[in-house]
Amino acid sequence: MTTSSREAILDSLRNATRKDSNIYADLPRNYVQRGSLDMASRLHLMTERLREYGAEVLESATAELPASIAHLLHSTGRRTFVVPPGLPTEWLSPAFGWKIDHSLSHDGIEHSDGVVTGASAAVADSGTIVLHHSSTEGRRVLTLLPDFHLCILRAHQIVETLPEYFARFPQPPRLATYISGPSATADIEMTRIKGVHGPRFLSVIIVRDEN
Protein backbone atom coordinates (compact mmCIF):
# COMPACT_ATOMS: atom_id res chain seq x y z
CA MET A 1 0.00 0.00 0.00
CA THR A 2 1.41 3.39 -0.93
CA THR A 3 1.66 6.22 1.56
CA SER A 4 -1.02 8.19 -0.28
CA SER A 5 -3.45 5.24 -0.11
CA ARG A 6 -2.72 4.77 3.56
CA GLU A 7 -3.35 8.45 4.28
CA ALA A 8 -6.56 8.40 2.26
CA ILE A 9 -7.87 5.50 4.36
CA LEU A 10 -6.83 7.15 7.62
CA ASP A 11 -8.42 10.44 6.55
CA SER A 12 -11.67 8.60 5.83
CA LEU A 13 -11.57 7.01 9.27
CA ARG A 14 -10.88 10.34 10.95
CA ASN A 15 -13.77 11.97 9.10
CA ALA A 16 -16.12 9.14 9.97
CA THR A 17 -15.25 9.11 13.66
CA ARG A 18 -14.61 12.74 14.48
CA LYS A 19 -16.79 14.14 17.22
CA ASP A 20 -19.01 16.40 15.19
CA SER A 21 -22.63 16.18 16.28
CA ASN A 22 -23.85 17.39 12.89
CA ILE A 23 -22.30 14.52 10.94
CA TYR A 24 -24.68 11.87 12.23
CA ALA A 25 -27.71 14.13 11.93
CA ASP A 26 -26.79 15.04 8.37
CA LEU A 27 -26.35 11.48 7.13
CA PRO A 28 -28.80 10.64 4.32
CA ARG A 29 -31.60 8.31 5.38
CA ASN A 30 -33.05 7.10 2.13
CA TYR A 31 -33.91 3.64 3.42
CA VAL A 32 -37.41 2.57 4.44
CA GLN A 33 -37.92 3.69 8.03
CA ARG A 34 -41.52 2.68 8.57
CA GLY A 35 -43.62 -0.11 7.14
CA SER A 36 -47.10 0.17 5.69
CA LEU A 37 -48.69 -3.11 6.75
CA ASP A 38 -51.60 -3.32 9.16
CA MET A 39 -51.52 -5.66 12.15
CA ALA A 40 -53.06 -8.64 10.33
CA SER A 41 -50.61 -8.30 7.45
CA ARG A 42 -47.64 -7.99 9.83
CA LEU A 43 -48.68 -11.18 11.60
CA HIS A 44 -49.06 -12.96 8.27
CA LEU A 45 -45.63 -11.80 7.09
CA MET A 46 -43.98 -12.78 10.39
CA THR A 47 -45.58 -16.22 10.25
CA GLU A 48 -44.60 -16.70 6.62
CA ARG A 49 -40.96 -15.76 7.29
CA LEU A 50 -40.69 -18.04 10.33
CA ARG A 51 -42.12 -20.98 8.42
CA GLU A 52 -39.73 -20.33 5.54
CA TYR A 53 -36.91 -20.77 8.06
CA GLY A 54 -38.35 -24.07 9.23
CA ALA A 55 -39.94 -22.87 12.48
CA GLU A 56 -43.31 -24.11 13.71
CA VAL A 57 -45.81 -21.28 14.27
CA LEU A 58 -49.15 -21.30 16.08
CA GLU A 59 -51.54 -18.51 17.04
CA SER A 60 -53.35 -18.33 20.35
CA ALA A 61 -55.73 -16.11 22.24
CA THR A 62 -54.48 -14.88 25.61
CA ALA A 63 -56.99 -16.95 27.57
CA GLU A 64 -56.02 -20.09 25.65
CA LEU A 65 -52.25 -19.60 25.95
CA PRO A 66 -51.53 -22.09 28.79
CA ALA A 67 -53.46 -24.78 26.92
CA SER A 68 -51.74 -23.88 23.64
CA ILE A 69 -48.31 -24.16 25.27
CA ALA A 70 -49.16 -27.55 26.81
CA HIS A 71 -50.58 -28.86 23.52
CA LEU A 72 -47.54 -27.81 21.52
CA LEU A 73 -45.05 -29.18 24.03
CA HIS A 74 -46.95 -32.47 24.25
CA SER A 75 -46.81 -32.82 20.44
CA THR A 76 -43.00 -32.69 20.53
CA GLY A 77 -42.70 -35.71 22.82
CA ARG A 78 -40.41 -33.69 25.10
CA ARG A 79 -41.05 -33.62 28.82
CA THR A 80 -38.48 -31.53 30.73
CA PHE A 81 -38.00 -27.83 30.05
CA VAL A 82 -35.87 -25.00 31.36
CA VAL A 83 -37.64 -21.68 31.93
CA PRO A 84 -36.52 -18.21 33.06
CA PRO A 85 -37.51 -17.28 36.62
CA GLY A 86 -39.94 -14.59 35.47
CA LEU A 87 -42.04 -16.76 33.16
CA PRO A 88 -45.70 -16.75 34.32
CA THR A 89 -46.39 -19.80 36.47
CA GLU A 90 -49.79 -20.31 34.82
CA TRP A 91 -47.92 -21.24 31.62
CA LEU A 92 -46.26 -24.19 33.35
CA SER A 93 -48.53 -27.21 33.01
CA PRO A 94 -48.02 -29.86 35.74
CA ALA A 95 -47.88 -32.46 32.96
CA PHE A 96 -44.23 -31.48 32.35
CA GLY A 97 -41.06 -31.20 34.36
CA TRP A 98 -39.84 -27.62 34.80
CA LYS A 99 -36.33 -26.45 35.67
CA ILE A 100 -36.46 -22.84 36.87
CA ASP A 101 -33.20 -21.12 36.00
CA HIS A 102 -31.91 -20.04 39.37
CA SER A 103 -28.29 -20.21 38.18
CA LEU A 104 -28.61 -23.68 36.68
CA SER A 105 -25.36 -25.25 35.53
CA HIS A 106 -24.62 -25.48 31.83
CA ASP A 107 -24.86 -29.24 32.13
CA GLY A 108 -28.30 -28.97 33.71
CA ILE A 109 -29.50 -26.70 30.92
CA GLU A 110 -28.04 -28.78 28.11
CA HIS A 111 -29.58 -31.99 29.38
CA SER A 112 -33.11 -30.63 29.41
CA ASP A 113 -35.45 -31.35 26.50
CA GLY A 114 -35.86 -27.68 25.65
CA VAL A 115 -36.50 -24.14 26.81
CA VAL A 116 -39.59 -21.91 26.93
CA THR A 117 -39.19 -18.12 26.93
CA GLY A 118 -40.92 -14.87 26.17
CA ALA A 119 -39.55 -12.20 23.81
CA SER A 120 -39.07 -8.43 23.66
CA ALA A 121 -39.79 -7.75 19.99
CA ALA A 122 -39.88 -9.19 16.49
CA VAL A 123 -39.24 -7.85 12.97
CA ALA A 124 -41.68 -9.22 10.41
CA ASP A 125 -39.68 -8.19 7.34
CA SER A 126 -36.84 -10.54 8.27
CA GLY A 127 -38.76 -12.94 10.53
CA THR A 128 -36.45 -12.06 13.41
CA ILE A 129 -37.28 -12.54 17.10
CA VAL A 130 -35.41 -10.27 19.52
CA LEU A 131 -34.56 -11.27 23.07
CA HIS A 132 -33.40 -8.61 25.56
CA HIS A 133 -32.88 -11.28 28.23
CA SER A 134 -35.40 -9.93 30.72
CA SER A 135 -36.78 -12.08 33.52
CA THR A 136 -39.23 -13.72 31.07
CA GLU A 137 -36.51 -14.32 28.44
CA GLY A 138 -33.71 -15.51 30.66
CA ARG A 139 -29.96 -15.71 30.27
CA ARG A 140 -28.56 -16.04 26.78
CA VAL A 141 -27.25 -19.51 27.54
CA LEU A 142 -30.82 -20.76 27.95
CA THR A 143 -31.49 -20.25 24.25
CA LEU A 144 -28.14 -21.61 23.07
CA LEU A 145 -27.71 -25.00 24.73
CA PRO A 146 -31.11 -26.80 24.56
CA ASP A 147 -32.08 -28.50 21.30
CA PHE A 148 -35.61 -27.03 21.27
CA HIS A 149 -36.87 -23.49 21.91
CA LEU A 150 -40.49 -22.45 22.31
CA CYS A 151 -40.84 -18.67 22.20
CA ILE A 152 -44.02 -16.84 23.21
CA LEU A 153 -44.44 -13.70 21.10
CA ARG A 154 -47.23 -11.16 21.52
CA ALA A 155 -48.74 -9.56 18.43
CA HIS A 156 -48.08 -5.98 19.61
CA GLN A 157 -44.37 -6.80 19.90
CA ILE A 158 -44.09 -7.32 16.14
CA VAL A 159 -42.94 -4.41 13.98
CA GLU A 160 -42.56 -4.52 10.23
CA THR A 161 -39.04 -3.17 9.72
CA LEU A 162 -35.74 -3.06 11.59
CA PRO A 163 -35.71 0.78 11.83
CA GLU A 164 -39.08 0.54 13.62
CA TYR A 165 -37.51 -1.80 16.16
CA PHE A 166 -34.73 0.71 16.86
CA ALA A 167 -37.29 3.52 17.04
CA ARG A 168 -39.13 1.53 19.69
CA PHE A 169 -35.87 0.68 21.48
CA PRO A 170 -33.49 3.58 20.76
CA GLN A 171 -31.08 2.23 23.35
CA PRO A 172 -31.38 -1.57 23.29
CA PRO A 173 -29.48 -3.49 25.94
CA ARG A 174 -25.81 -4.21 25.36
CA LEU A 175 -26.65 -7.91 25.16
CA ALA A 176 -29.49 -8.81 22.82
CA THR A 177 -30.10 -11.95 20.80
CA TYR A 178 -31.59 -11.84 17.29
CA ILE A 179 -33.15 -15.14 16.20
CA SER A 180 -34.15 -15.82 12.60
CA GLY A 181 -35.34 -19.42 12.60
CA PRO A 182 -33.67 -22.52 14.04
CA SER A 183 -29.89 -22.52 14.25
CA ALA A 184 -28.28 -23.51 10.94
CA THR A 185 -25.07 -22.97 9.01
CA ALA A 186 -23.65 -23.95 5.64
CA ASP A 187 -20.07 -22.89 6.41
CA ILE A 188 -18.80 -26.48 6.47
CA GLU A 189 -18.31 -27.58 2.84
CA MET A 190 -21.55 -25.74 1.98
CA THR A 191 -23.58 -28.47 3.69
CA ARG A 192 -26.47 -27.14 5.74
CA ILE A 193 -26.11 -28.26 9.35
CA LYS A 194 -28.67 -27.48 12.05
CA GLY A 195 -27.96 -26.86 15.71
CA VAL A 196 -24.39 -25.55 15.50
CA HIS A 197 -25.09 -22.20 17.16
CA GLY A 198 -28.26 -22.94 19.07
CA PRO A 199 -31.49 -24.99 19.02
CA ARG A 200 -32.20 -27.15 15.99
CA PHE A 201 -35.93 -26.74 16.54
CA LEU A 202 -37.82 -23.47 17.03
CA SER A 203 -41.53 -23.16 17.76
CA VAL A 204 -43.32 -19.85 18.16
CA ILE A 205 -46.74 -19.11 19.62
CA ILE A 206 -48.02 -15.69 18.54
CA VAL A 207 -50.51 -14.37 21.08
CA ARG A 208 -53.25 -12.26 19.55
CA ASP A 209 -53.86 -8.89 21.20
CA GLU A 210 -57.20 -8.58 22.94
CA ASN A 211 -59.34 -5.49 22.38
Rank of each mutant, 00 (worst) to 15 (best):
F201C: 07
L45I: 02
G181R: 10
I205Q: 04
S183R: 08
S60Y: 09
H197R: 04
M190Y: 01
M46L: 12
T136W: 01
L27F: 09
R208V: 07
L27S: 06
L58K: 14
D147V: 11
R200V: 07
H133K: 04
V159K: 07
R200G: 15
S68W: 06
R14M: 13
G86H: 01
I193Y: 00
R192E: 11
G181L: 10
K194S: 11
K194D: 11
L73I: 11
R139G: 08
E52L: 13
W91A: 09
S105V: 07
I179T: 04
E160G: 02
I193N: 00
I193H: 02
E210N: 13
A40C: 06
T161E: 10
N15T: 09
Y165D: 06
H111S: 15
D147P: 00
R168S: 13
T62K: 13
P172W: 08
L153H: 02
V82H: 01
M190K: 05
R14P: 00
S112V: 09
F96P: 01
A119G: 06
P172E: 12
K194F: 13
L72V: 10
R200F: 05
T17I: 09
W91C: 12
S4G: 04
L37W: 03
D26L: 12
L10W: 08
M190I: 04
V207A: 01
D209M: 12
F201L: 13
E189Y: 07
D209V: 08
